[in-house]
């Protein structure tokens, strides 16, 4: 496969033509914030945190779905990008009800970590304090929509890896939410295999195991690339 050489923040790098700017940035230890992206699942370009500037293009491009090109010059951390990224995080904080101090994922939350990393110490946006539901019907797992950032990792891991497609998105705009089985309570889901992958990929405390107290819900998503590879091997056979 052809290999392209290009620049990330002035640094010469190279990547196979099927690789993305995000792949190569990570390979070269260039930090790009991401939230919807997770290794092993199809990228959707939804959170817009990994957007970069590419010389010659007046549009910002999401690094997770932008394939490398010969000679491209990528800027990952301009002042403008930093500002937009902080605003994106602020938007997530105001659209939900994120109360870190009483959250099962406190200390293990990607949203919390990103805010720290990108220096979000407050927001000028208007807190919406929406009234959102909690589904604790399932005997092992629970979802707290107050903490959901709609990254759709659960939807994708359930469809792409587990093959159950229990999760999907319902409603639109600010009222969009992830649902199990056409919006029935999780306990009544006929498709859920209780594999728990959705719990592990959730970046926040939205999806969690019951009986976890504040800060106790650690996540382990390292199994994903392995499963993905195995599935591809299985499919090829």
């Amino acid at each position: 496969m052809p290999v392209k050489t290009f620049k990330i923040d002035g640094q010469d790098v190279s990547g196979r033509e099927d690789e993305t700017v995000l792949d190569i940035a990570r390979e070269n230890n260039v930090f790009l914030p991401t939230l919807c992206n997770i290794e092993g699942l199809k990228p959707v370009g939804a959170c817009r945190l990994c957007m970069v500037e590419v010389k010659g293009s007046n549009k910002l491009l999401p690094a997770c779905v932008t394939k490398v090109e010969e000679g491209m010059e990528v800027t990952t951390n301009s002042e403008r990008l930093q500002k937009y990224r902080r605003m994106i995080l602020e938007m997530l904080f105001v659209e939900g009800n994120h109360v870190c101090s009483v959250c099962v994922a406190n200390g293990h939350c990607e949203l919390q970590w990103l805010a720290e990393k990108l220096g979000v110490d407050h927001t000028r946006l208007n807190y919406m304090f929406p009234k959102k539901e909690i589904d604790v019907s399932h005997y092992r797992y629970a979802i707290d929509h107050n903490r959901c950032v709609l990254c759709t990792r659960c939807v994708r891991v359930c469809g792409e890896i587990e093959g159950a497609h229990t999760w999907d998105v319902s409603g639109r705009g600010i009222n969009a939410k992830v649902v199990t089985d056409l919006n029935t309570p999780w306990a009544l889901s006929e498709t859920c295999t209780e594999c728990g992958k959705c719990i592990q990929v959730c970046p926040t405390g939205a999806l969690f195991k019951k009986s976890r107290a504040v800060g106790e819900m650690t996540k382990d998503d390292h199994f994903l690339p392995y499963l993905k590879t195995m599935r591809e091997v299985d499919n090829a056979e």
Binding site: V94, L125, G171, R172, G173
Partner: peptide, 22 residues
């Protein structure tokens, strides 16, 4: 636009609602 946003990307989903409020 706020009503018709699909909700997939954050800037449109939240940004339109914030601008509407302002």
């Amino acid at each position: 636009c706020m009503d018709e946003s699909c909700g997939k990307c954050i800037p449109c989903r939240v940004g339109t609602a914030q601008m509407y409020e302002l």
